[in-house]
Design a protein around this nucleic acid. Structure first.
Length: 589
DNA sequence: GTTGTAATAT
DNA sequence: CATATTACAA
């Protein structure tokens, strides 16, 4: 404890909510000690407790005296779950469960009972460092609720949730948290723009498409397009992005951002499409030239094609992308609608409609391809796709046991995944390095599932049918979300869940088998590509691939900015408190 | 009432 | 100059 006083392993600042009051409950004194120490290193204020009873007592006595509870599951005097339950009942505190084993049923139970996280021992700093987020998440929701109820002009003006929250809503309130200062500097970096002229609020504030927002946007687009955009035709996978059915309205709905207007979305979509078409043009170029061969990655071509310096790294990314996973691209991206107008005509989509059947074994594949394809290219500091995101949404923890567990994260090479605050829904994550037996098995994967209710479902789509989706979800509660227009018996979005978890291999197989002839130069590449895709898909629609996973060489090829971006990911993973800032920086670039 | 596009504003 | 917003036609 002495040495804990300050700096500890992490060079960077500790999690910003220093002073978070954590109550640790564990019957094992050793663990208690360890945890205490670790937590203190995180600058939390720690109270330890060897007995659940005592803990409960403490909690009752000092209501509001703690911000979060971390409790072991196995305790002699009282089952951790019982404690969890009571806490949940009597006070509104986030509770993190922990245990040595990652037995599924347990974890499940924990989450079902309202645990906001489930940690497996041994617990690592990283995991602890981020627990504050659970506290925030709660508040975010609270705030959000309020906002959505009453008007929300004032603060909503710009930025996505995160920023606002940073701006003090949380702390200002009740108890806790000291770190006004620390937060300050964060704020400073980005709040200049918002409130500066709040006076002029009369005018419509310009929506800033933060990375965050964009993420949501892309996600929405993907969700919608999910069924329609991809189909498989012989050797080419054609991907129509943002075609037909994808409209601002739907996207808006999916995004579920109260203050966003359809126009905003439309505008963004416009931009997005533009971007995509540009992309695809470039791709076409490359393909037509060197399509089959490696040549396409030729930096020069790429460079040339990409020359537009404009949008930050986009192009660069492309280029890189091509470099590192050429084959993937060729294969995948064929036509985005080059010009939305051309392709848009509802006609285009026909294919997919008419081919519900093909989905079957392809389904998994499709998913794989889809995102990568759509978003196409590789991630960059800020690209038009989503931003790295490791997180799991889970809106109905209580409802479907099974479902709960589809979202499980297994840490990726040393990194640990953690919840990222999300405005949409309660987030539950399970972080551990151990694997949950049935759910996950092989690789480090992340699974991020679309919100169940999100299914857009146009009447026609049926594709999933043959897909093995055991449970169907019916959207129970999701706070603010209301898919007004389409309230589908959703199962689609969930449908692909399984694939992420277990389909690694199969998808690979699929991938290579379904696209045999294609330009792959080497089997390895095929694998790699397939893998990446799968992976990225799982990651959450579209994402970055993490260096850990990939073959090192790939990473090596990654140019600076990209690399930076990746690094950034990591940071994000371990310390999301700075996310907003960083994002913004990138975004604005 | 929506959407996509083009004009306009920032 | 890029892009958000606004206007407007389909």
């Amino acid at each position: 404890m002495m040495e804990s006083s300050k700096g500890f392993s992490s060079p960077r600042s500790t999690a910003f909510p220093a002073g978070l009051r954590v109550l640790v409950v564990d019957d094992d004194p050793t663990w208690l000690k360890i945890l205490e120490k670790m937590l203190k290193k995180c600058s939390y204020e720690v109270t330890t407790c060897g007995l659940a009873r005592d803990a409960l007592k403490l909690l009752r006595e000092r209501k509001g005296g703690y911000d979060i509870v971390i409790s072991d599951v196995n305790m002699p005097d009282m089952d951790g779950f019982k404690l969890l339950e009571l806490v949940g009942l009597e006070m509104d505190l986030p509770v993190i469960m922990m245990s040595v084993d990652g037995e599924t049923s347990r974890v499940k139970k924990g989450v079902q009972h309202g645990a906001c996280d489930y940690l497996l021992k041994p617990i690592r700093m990283k995991e602890l460092r981020n627990i504050w987020q659970h506290v925030f998440r709660k508040r975010i929701h609270e705030v959000r609720d309020i906002e959505s109820h009453e008007g929300l002009e004032g603060l909503q003006v710009t930025q996505s949730g995160f920023d606002q929250f940073d701006d003090g809503h949380f702390f200002s309130g009740e108890d806790m948290l000291t770190p006004a200062k620390k937060r300050k500097d964060l704020e400073n970096k980005h709040d200049e723009k918002d409130f500066t002229d709040s006076s002029s609020s009369t005018k419509k504030a310009r929506v800033v498409w933060s990375v965050d927002l964009h993420q949501k946007f892309v996600k929405a687009v993907n969700l919608i397009g999910y069924d329609s955009q991809i189909f498989y035709s012989g050797k080419d996978v054609t991907c129509l992005v943002c075609s037909a059915e994808v409209g601002p309205k739907k996207i808006l709905d999916l995004m579920n951002i109260p203050w966003l207007t359809r126009e905003n979305v439309a505008s963004h979509l416009q931009k997005y499409r533009l971007y995509l078409s540009r992309l695809q043009k470039e791709n076409d170029l490359k393909i037509s030239y060197g399509g089959m061969k490696h040549s396409d990655l030729n930096p020069q071509d790429a460079a040339r094609a990409l020359s537009r310096q404009n949008s930050i790294n986009f192009e660069q990314n492309d280029a890189t992308n091509c470099n590192s996973r050429i084959s993937g691209n060729n294969l995948l991206i064929q036509n985005l609608n080059s010009k939305s107008n051309e392709i848009n005509p509802r006609g285009t989509t026909i294919t997919e409609k008419s081919s519900p059947g093909i989905s079957h074994s392809l389904s998994p594949l499709e998913q794989e391809m889809k995102f990568p394809a759509i978003d196409g290219i590789t991630p960059g500091s800020y690209s038009w796709r989503e931003v790295p995101e490791i997180q799991f949404h889970q809106e109905n923890a209580g409802n479907q046991p099974e479902d709960c567990f589809r979202r499980v994260a297994v840490p990726m090479g040393g990194l640990q995944n953690h919840v990222q605050i999300d405005q949409l829904l309660p987030v539950t994550s399970i972080s551990s390095k151990a694997q949950l037996p049935n759910l996950i098995e092989t690789k480090p994967l992340n699974v991020d599932y679309a919100i169940s209710s999100f299914t857009q479902a146009s009447p026609v789509k049926t594709r999933i049918d043959s897909f093995p989706v055991p449970t169907k979800i019916h959207t129970g509660n999701q706070q603010a979300i209301q898919p007004p227009s389409t309230n589908k018996p959703s199962m689609e979005s969930q449908a692909f869940n399984p694939s992420c978890v277990t389909n690694l291999e199969s998808s690979q197989r699929n991938f290579s088998s379904t696209t045999p002839e294609s330009a792959f130069t080497s089997p390895d590449e095929v694998l790699q590509v397939g893998w990446l895709q799968d992976y990225s898909t799982c990651l959450g629609l579209q994402n970055i691939e993490f260096p850990d996973f990939g073959d090192p060489s790939m990473v090596a090829e990654v140019p600076m900015h990209l690399y930076t971006a990746l690094k950034f990911d990591f940071e994000q993973l371990s310390d999301q408190s700075e996310l907003p800032v960083i994002n913004q920086g990138l975004f604005i670039a």
